Simulated scan of single mutants.
Amino acid sequence: MSQSSQNSPLPGNPVPSSFNWLYAFWKFSRPHTIIGTSLSVLGLYLIAIAISTDAINHISTDAIHRVSTSSLLPVFGAWIACLCGNVYIVGLNQLEDVEIDKINKPHLPLASGEFSQQTGQLIVAFTGILALVVAWLTGPFLLGMVAISLAIGTAYSLPPIRLKQFPVWAALCIFSVRGTIVNLGLYLHYSWALQQSQTIPPVVWVLTLFILVFTFAIAIFKDIPDMEGDRLYNITTFTIKLGPQAVFNLSLWVITVCYLGIILVGVLRVASINPIFLIVTHLGLLVWLWLRSSTVDLQDKSAIAQFYQFIWKLFFMEYLIFPIACLLA
């Protein structure tokens, strides 16, 4: 029996090939962004619920009543639309960066050859259309948020605009979508669905500002491990302009400012949140950040990538910690 026939899945057993395709699709969707998107959808919903319960003094029977099957439909619709939009944006970027990813991220499906260019194009087209259709069926604020996000994501990756070539515009695209458009758009969507006032309360502004600044740190840090491929294909980034050490330090201090700012919010009680929970959790995360950063070797690409994933984990935690602080107020 030939080597190729040994490695091929049996005709009657399509599971291995199906699993391989699903795993490739999972990598194509960039899991860390999928997790971040899912948590933002859930976190903003919990904040909207907290605000809807009598000035969020306590979780009452009204809160339980609101979390019913009908009130969960806007969440499910937002989740599907945002996930599809997420796949469209990261997928389009991979379609345009195949040669660069062969150097920087050879594990991605298009760069490794697991997906053909045509497969990538079909996935991107399908998820982009589905995101808009689901958003249109779910609510006007969600449709606006998704449409704006897709437009910015397209301008980020697609020639001739291709804003990712310019470090300032590239960073602006990333943190404007994740920091501002997603948070405000999701809250307005939930507020509309729950028939609340369309006024954005202070707690949402606090979270939005925190995520906005934090995402800037992510936007500039993500290029540190990709310096080799970016330089080869003339993609100008802050890392290439300033050097990896400077960008690493800048990202670290930006996140530190985020945590100090949120701690100050708790001390001054400028929003309806539980101050003790907010202060203690963010002090703990700040200490963890600095301890973790002291062990990073900038000459080790895998160590940089691991710290980048650690930053994303801190990002994930905020969409859990902040809503809990609102619910505990």
Results as ranks from 00 to 15, higher is better:
Gln3Lys: 03
Gln3Met: 09
Gln3Asn: 02
Gln3Ala: 02
Gln3Glu: 06
Gln3Ile: 04
Ser4Pro: 01
Ser5Arg: 10
Ser5His: 02
Ser5Cys: 06
Gln6Glu: 11
Asn7Pro: 00
Ser8Gln: 11
Ser8Met: 05
Pro9Gly: 01
Pro9Phe: 05
Pro9Lys: 05
Pro9Trp: 08
Leu10Asn: 06
Leu10Arg: 06
Leu10Ser: 09
Leu10Lys: 13
Leu10Trp: 04
Pro11Cys: 06
Pro11Gln: 08
Pro11Trp: 07
Gly12Lys: 15
Gly12Gln: 14
Asn13Met: 12
Asn13Val: 13
Pro14Cys: 12
Pro14Ser: 14
Pro14Arg: 13
Pro14Ile: 05
Pro16Tyr: 09
Ser17Ile: 14
Ser18His: 12
Phe19Gln: 04
Asn20Ile: 10
Trp21Val: 05
Leu22Met: 13
Leu22Phe: 15
Tyr23Asp: 01
Ala24Thr: 00
Ala24Lys: 01
Phe25Ile: 03
Phe25Tyr: 06
Phe25Gly: 02
Phe25Met: 08
Trp26Val: 03
Trp26Gly: 03
Lys27Gln: 06
Lys27Asn: 10
Lys27Cys: 13
Phe28Cys: 09
Phe28Met: 11
Phe28Ala: 01
Ser29Gly: 11
Ser29Pro: 08
Ser29Cys: 14
Ser29Leu: 13
Ser29Val: 05
Ser29Thr: 15
Arg30Asn: 12
Arg30Phe: 04
Arg30Leu: 10
Arg30Ile: 11
Arg30Val: 06
Arg30Pro: 02
Pro31Thr: 09
Pro31Lys: 09
Pro31Tyr: 08
Pro31Gly: 11
His32Cys: 07
His32Met: 06
His32Arg: 12
His32Ser: 03
His32Thr: 03
His32Ile: 03
Ile34His: 01
Ile34Arg: 00
Ile35Glu: 00
Thr37Asn: 04
Ser38Met: 09
Leu39Glu: 01
Ser40Arg: 04
Ser40Thr: 08
Ser40Pro: 00
Val41Ser: 08
Val41Glu: 11
Leu42Gln: 05
Leu42Arg: 01
Gly43His: 00
Gly43Cys: 03
Gly43Pro: 03
Tyr45Trp: 15
Tyr45Pro: 04
Ile47Asp: 00
Ile47Glu: 02
Ile47Gln: 08
Ala48His: 04
Ile49Pro: 06
Ala50Gln: 08
Ala50Ser: 15
Ile51Ala: 14
Ile51Asn: 07
Ser52Arg: 08
Ser52Cys: 07
Ser52Asp: 13
Thr53Phe: 03
Thr53Gln: 03
Thr53Cys: 12
Thr53Lys: 00
Thr53Asp: 12
Thr53Pro: 00
Asp54Ile: 07
Asp54Gly: 03
Ala55Pro: 00
Ala55Gly: 01
Ala55Gln: 07
Ile56Lys: 02
Asn57Ser: 10
His58Asn: 12
His58Leu: 14
His58Ile: 08
Ser60Tyr: 12
Ser60His: 13
Thr61Ile: 12
Thr61Leu: 12
Asp62His: 15
Asp62Arg: 04
Ala63Leu: 09
Ala63Val: 04
Ala63Asn: 04
His65Tyr: 14
His65Ser: 15
His65Val: 05
Arg66Thr: 10
Arg66Lys: 12
Val67Asn: 08
Val67Thr: 13
Val67Asp: 06
Ser68Cys: 02
Ser68Val: 02
Thr69Asn: 09
Thr69Ala: 04
Thr69Met: 06
Ser70Thr: 06
